[in-house]
């Protein structure tokens, strides 16, 4: 009985793992097929000869290297900004007393419940009014601070005793020194998780980039890929090559920071 159960469990899990992995393996295989192989009936599973030129062709049709740079730059700048604003705000919320602090906290909790759809289209108008459409600022500015990350960090930092702060003050430590020398080192695991999460969110963002970018030069990987799909028409082998180009970098990051990423994503709930 026990044995039968564990065989069943293994079978089920292996099937699931296979089903999960298959589309990605097939994507990579297809990115190395000829157009005929990729569109043949019955479908080709394995390319006769690896067509590495698909990648150069995809790169020639759309500037994926530029998209790549844009994405890394925008996701990186947003992440850095979020980390800085969140550390400062979380410090104030945890260690300082000021007027309306509780009111601000409650207001922020209320903001957490408002869906993205309510604000995103007005943000587009704001960016347009600032004359920032189709710029890096447009892509970065709205994600420089996040209520969610402030709360996440605040929860984490609450465990640091207030006496540390008081002792540092007695020793003549300024607030910024305290943040830099004590708070950041102690909050490292949380900051790391936040950083990775924010970067992945920036990497996969879709709605905002399609709203605020027009020119090819400003597109990110996600909307660049989706417009490439429209522009390249039926060239699925090139589409799969382009998809591979966008997925592989994030997978490399994932395999380096697997534990932190999994923990972080679980904490934050779910992507759409």
């Amino acid at each position: 009985m026990k044995k039968a159960y564990s065989i069943l469990a293994y079978t089920f899990i292996i099937v699931m793992a296979f089903v999960t992995l298959f589309p990605f393996v097939y994507m990579i295989l297809a990115s190395l097929m000829t157009f005929q192989e990729a569109t043949s009936i019955p479908p080709t599973l394995f390319p006769n000869e690896f067509q590495w030129s698909n990648f150069t062709q995809a790169l020639a049709q759309a500037p994926f290297d530029r998209y790549f740079f844009n994405t890394v730059f925008v996701a990186g700048a947003s992440t850095l900004g979020t980390l800085v604003t969140s550390v400062l705000a979380a410090f104030a919320l945890v260690k300082l007393e000021f007027k309306f602090k509780n009111f601000i906290l409650m207001g922020m909790i209320a903001l957490l419940m408002v869906p993205y759809e309510v604000i995103v289209f007005t943000n587009y108008q704001t960016i347009a009014k600032f004359g920032l459409l189709d710029t890096y600022q447009a892509l970065i500015l709205p994600s420089l601070a996040s209520v969610f990350y402030i709360f996440y960090l605040k929860e984490y930092l609450t465990s640091i005793p207030l006496s540390y702060y008081k002792a540092a003050k007695v020793d003549g430590c300024s607030d910024l020194e305290f943040i830099w020398k004590i708070l950041i080192p102690m909050g490292k695991p949380a900051l790391f998780t936040m950083g990775i999460l924010s970067f992945i969110n920036g990497w996969n963002a879709f709605l905002w980039p399609i709203l605020v970018t027009n020119s090819k030069e400003m597109r990110l990987l996600s909307n660049g890929l989706s417009s490439f799909a429209t522009e390249s028409g039926t060239s699925v082998h090139l589409q799969m090559a382009a998809s591979t180009l966008t997925i592989v970098p994030i997978l490399i990051v994932y395999f380096i920071f697997r534990k932190q990423i999994i923990r972080g994503v679980v904490k934050s709930g779910v992507k759409g």
Binding site: P23, F24, F206, N223, I250, L251, Y254
Partner: peptide, 9 residues
């Protein structure tokens, strides 16, 4: 976990 990290595009 791979699909969770893949961009929807």
């Amino acid at each position: 976990f791979i699909p969770t990290l893949t961009s929807s595009a």
